[in-house]
Structure formats: structure tokens, C-alpha cells
Amino acid sequence: MTTYAAFLRGINVGGAKKVPMARLRALAEGLGYSEVATYINSGNLVFSSTKKPATLERELASAIKDEFGFGVDVCVRSQAGLTKILAANPYPDGEPSKVTVAFLAARAPAGAADRLATLAKEHEPFTVAGTEVYVHYGQGLGTSELAEKFAKLVGVSATVRNVRTVEKVLALMG
């Protein structure tokens, strides 16, 4: 058994795509996952399974569509992978609520860094690292044009969490 975290994109934001966490946990248990837990109401699911990440992503996305009636992108990372992602954070001195990790559905396509650079301000350094993109929003995400247009610029489905949330999810994994 491997412990995984699944990050769901765009649920429970502004009243759209509502997914109650109790129903999400029940759905995951119904798929045969064990040790199921959620962290806050923004689509952070922790569970154990013998299946591979790509299979889990497809399975969860399909089950969510069947259960809730809308599509959701799902990014799955193992406990070991999440530990490495946090260790690789190029902005360890940044305030954890202002440093984000974007979990990409696939490797960042060619030109992603150049597209991000067109909107990144001096106080918004970023690092593209394979299937993750780290951004330090020095003045916060609330007024950042980069944050607002990030998914379109990166060119692949992405779901973003701040480092504090990723740390909490990893702690929940045990």
C-alpha cells in the first residue's frame, strides 16, 4: 500500500463545483481506498491504495463526474513524492502562505517559463520543476495578475496549494 494525496482543481471556490468533504471521503472509500481523510474544504484527499497515480487520477475524476455531475482535474502525488516536492522548495524562507506549489497534470510544456515570465512581477519569482511550479507571491496572491492567469499561462492543467497547506496534507499522511 502506498499513501497518496489527491489535489482536486477548482472545487468549492466561490460556490461553484460543490463537493462536500464527507461525500468525497465516502466516494474514495467506495473506490476501495483505505485510510481516507480530507484536509480543509478545498479538495485535498489523503488515502492509501495499491494502484498507480495515473490510474488513481482517472478513477477519481470519473467517479467525481458520476457522483457530482461535473468534471474535475485531479493530481495525485505519493507521500514520498510530496516529501521531495517540499524539500525542493526554492523559496524556503518565504512565508508559507505566500509560496505556492502548482501540481501539474503533466510536465510543464516548452515555453511555460517564458509565458509565466510575461506576467511575473519582480516580487513574484517562480521556478518550473517538471510536474510542479513554485511561485513566491511576495505581495500575496489576492492582487496578482500572475496568480489570476497562471493556469492558462502554464499551458497544462494545474491545481495550486500554498506550502502551508501542502505541509498540513503531508502531516495528515502520517
Score class of each variant (00 low, 15 high):
P20Q: 01
G111S: 07
E167L: 03
V166Y: 01
G69S: 03
L82S: 12
A120D: 10
P90H: 10
V13W: 09
A6Y: 06
A110L: 11
Y33C: 01
V160H: 08
T38S: 11
R161Q: 02
V13S: 04
A151I: 15
N89M: 15
F103R: 00
F68W: 06
V72R: 13
G15H: 03
N12E: 01
L24A: 00
G43P: 01
K98D: 02
N12V: 02
P92E: 11
I64W: 00
T127G: 02
L31K: 02
G140N: 08
V163I: 15
V166C: 10
S62T: 14
S48F: 10
D93A: 12
E59T: 10
F47P: 03
L31G: 01
R107S: 12
G71W: 06
E167N: 03
L146A: 07
A112F: 07
V160C: 05
G69Y: 05
L116N: 13
A158F: 10
G10M: 04
T131H: 03
E148V: 08
R115G: 03
E95V: 14
V163C: 12
L60C: 07
N41W: 09
V19R: 03
L146N: 08
R23Q: 04
T83V: 06
L24V: 00
R23I: 01
R23E: 05
K98S: 01
G140F: 01
T127D: 10
A112Y: 06
L119W: 05
Y134F: 14
A61N: 06
L27F: 10
E57A: 12
V160N: 11
V36R: 14
A26C: 04
F7Y: 09
I11V: 14
E35I: 09
G94C: 14
R77S: 11
P90Q: 11
M21D: 07
F103M: 02
S42Y: 03
P53E: 15
A37Q: 13
I85E: 13
T100S: 15
V156C: 13
G142I: 11
E57R: 12
F68M: 05
A26W: 12
V36C: 07
V76C: 09
I11W: 08
A61Y: 02
G140W: 01
V133I: 14
D114Y: 04
K17P: 09
I85P: 04
T55V: 12
H123Y: 04
F103G: 00
R77T: 14
T50M: 03
Q79I: 09
V76T: 13
L141N: 07
A88T: 09
V13A: 06
A113V: 07
A151C: 09
P90V: 09
V101F: 08
V36H: 12
